[in-house]
């Protein structure tokens, strides 16, 4: 078992929704990422999605596109991201999910990735452009190395697809809050509640909701029905705008804002 199921067990006991932070590894530079993750943990983040930058991130909005470009320019590769994970793991037991696109993984080799990811202390893997339909070999490999395979479900996913997604996911299911790319929005989409409800009927796996959740009040709203909320672009914007020594402190404060909202609402 990975570190993910015990986390959701603990969240259930604490009667709160979890806070998952997405961070593009290597922005502003690979050396900084471990301390940014430590800052997020300090602010109460329960799990990290470690983004491997890709040159052509079709599912991402401008904030994460820019972060990916900066990370690539700073020399961030999948191999480097695995080393970042290992560095985080030396001091922390926070669950880490690798989050990227398929091509860098194909080039690295799925078998090699499975072996190296486990060795570096990674718990699971989510590939944005790999749906369950094409994922047979990835699933088989990840299972063999005891890594969770997390798949996305979207408001557009048919009932038949939701069922397949539930069957092939382990750890948790990532629900996309709305149609669109990643990025901050002014309000929570009305498609969240129906998607959570329909997935609940299909699986006992924890459900985490992401895309467009950028303010504590959004997190509170979503956290009331989901097992975890995922914040990405809001953190990446902070990283983009503040390169000074106080960045870590800012991230901690920002994370705490989300964490407190989740705690208040469901406690």
């Amino acid at each position: 078992m990975t570190r993910i199921p015990p986390l959701f067990e603990r969240l259930k006991q604490e009667n709160r929704s979890g806070l998952i932070a997405y961070i593009t590894a290597g922005d502003p530079c690979p050396e900084r990422t471990p301390s940014l993750i430590a800052a997020l943990e300090e602010g109460g983040v329960d799990m990290v999605e470690l983004g491997v930058p890709f040159s052509d991130p079709v599912a991402d909005g401008p904030v994460i596109q820019r972060a990916s470009q900066r990370a690539l320019r700073a020399g961030t590769s999948l191999a480097r991201v695995l080393d970042i994970a290992a560095e985080v793991r030396r001091r922390s037991s926070i669950p880490i999910v690798l989050f990227t696109y398929l091509n860098p993984v194909l080039r690295y080799g799925i078998e090699k990735l499975g072996r190296d990811a486990v060795e570096r202390g990674i718990d699971g893997c989510l590939l944005t452009d790999l749906s369950v339909d094409e994922a047979a070999s990835q699933i088989e490999t990840m299972r063999r190395f005891d890594l969770d395979t997390i798949f996305l479900a979207a408001p557009t996913s048919s009932a038949k697809r939701c069922k397949l997604i539930a069957e092939h996911s382990t750890g948790f299911v990532y629900l996309v809050s709305r149609t669109g790319v990643t990025g901050e929005k002014d309000s929570v989409s009305s498609t969240v509640a129906p998607l959570v409800a329909s997935m609940r009927a299909l699986t006992s796996l924890p459900l985490a909701v992401g895309f467009g959740i950028s303010k504590p009040e959004h997190a509170a709203e979503v956290g009331a029905i989901a097992d975890a909320v995922i914040i990405g672009s809001a953190f990446m914007r902070t990283i983009e705008q503040h390169r000074d020594d106080a960045l870590e402190q800012r991230l901690t404060v920002q994370a705490r804002g989300f964490r407190d909202a989740l705690f208040r609402r469901t406690a």
């Binding site: 599912a59 339909d133 996305l152 979207a154 996913s157 697809r161 996309v176």
Partner: peptide, 14 residues
Amino acid sequence: GGRYVPEILMSPLE
């Protein structure tokens, strides 16, 4: 070939 896109597009492609 195949179909390697974000999940949002899978049902629309079907």
